[in-house]
């Protein structure tokens, strides 16, 4: 009997906490499609604000996607081979390099941005291009890709798998594409989702690195919060959710799947 009460109390508490977090999100999303937020939903539902956001800010959405894709390509191209090499070496040097690559996780985004501006801010063309933001994003997301791939590689005996593939006649590249990559797939996929999600949502770094010509979605959001009608800002948030939530769900699904195996 007491257990039952305890359970109910816990359930109610959990629901309260959830609603505390979710209600503002829902309200905010709703605000993006109501005629007038102060009159409430009865003032009517409209796509007007979404249209306005699209007109004002579609550039930031494209740029965010563009940067996320290039960031993904770069972290795959750097992170996967690096993880492979690091997993193969078990010397001190390899551990040291791993620490260095992973370091940006521990450093505040603002500090990374500042370091980038101090070092490379002088190259004007570079500084004013979105490539500058991309570099920041790569630095920031690479550790996640590396960690994720490294974790799978160290949990399989891929070293021996590679040796047995070699004994069967496979050259290095054949081994890499037929053995290493397929067996690291779950880690690569998890890393990729993480990189894209982080890159699309990144604000700290990007806020420091952007120029009026190179605004990403989160920077645009901040801008709209500061200077636009509440409904426009809310509609913008709604668009952000629509982009990011499928990624989060995919990430969740993937981790469930790999946990089961």
């Amino acid at each position: 009997m007491r257990n039952k009460w305890l359970f109910r109390a816990q359930l109610i508490f959990t629901l309260l906490v959830c609603s505390f977090l979710i209600v503002p999100v829902i309200l905010s999303a709703l605000a993006g499609i109501t005629q007038n937020f102060f009159l409430g939903i009865k003032s009517g539902i409209t796509l007007h604000w979404l249209g306005e956001v699209w007109q004002l800010y579609s550039g930031t959405i494209y740029l965010s996607l563009l940067i996320a894709i290039w960031c993904l390509i770069a972290t795959l191209a750097i992170g996967v081979p690096a993880a492979y090499v690091l997993a193969k070496q078990n010397g001190k040097l390899a551990r040291f390099i791993e620490e260095i690559i992973v370091l940006p996780i521990a450093i505040p985004g603002l500090a990374i941005a500042l370091a980038l501006i101090i070092n490379y801010g002088g190259f004007r063309d570079f500084r004013t291009s979105w490539g500058f933001i991309l570099v920041g994003h790569i630095l920031y997301t690479l550790p996640f890709m590396l960690r994720s791939v490294l974790a799978v590689l160290s949990s399989t005996n891929f070293h021996e798998l590679e040796e047995s593939a070699a004994s069967l006649g496979a050259s290095f590249w054949q081994r890499f594409f037929t053995i290493i990559l397929p067996n690291a797939k779950s880690g690569i996929l998890a890393g990729a989702l993480m990189v894209v999600t982080l890159s699309i949502g990144e604000f700290n770094l990007t806020w420091m690195l952007h120029t009026p010509e190179t605004k990403t979605l989160p920077v645009g959001l901040a801008d709209s919060y500061a200077s636009m009608r509440l409904e426009v800002a809310s509609a913008y948030t709604l668009i952000f959710f629509v982009m990011i939530i499928p990624l989060l769900i995919a990430m969740q699904k993937l981790s469930q799947k790999t946990n089961k195996v």
Binding site: N157, E160, L161, S164, I179
Partner: peptide, 8 residues
Amino acid sequence: QSYALFPN
């Protein structure tokens, strides 16, 4: 010894 069969 551990067979090293390809799990994929």
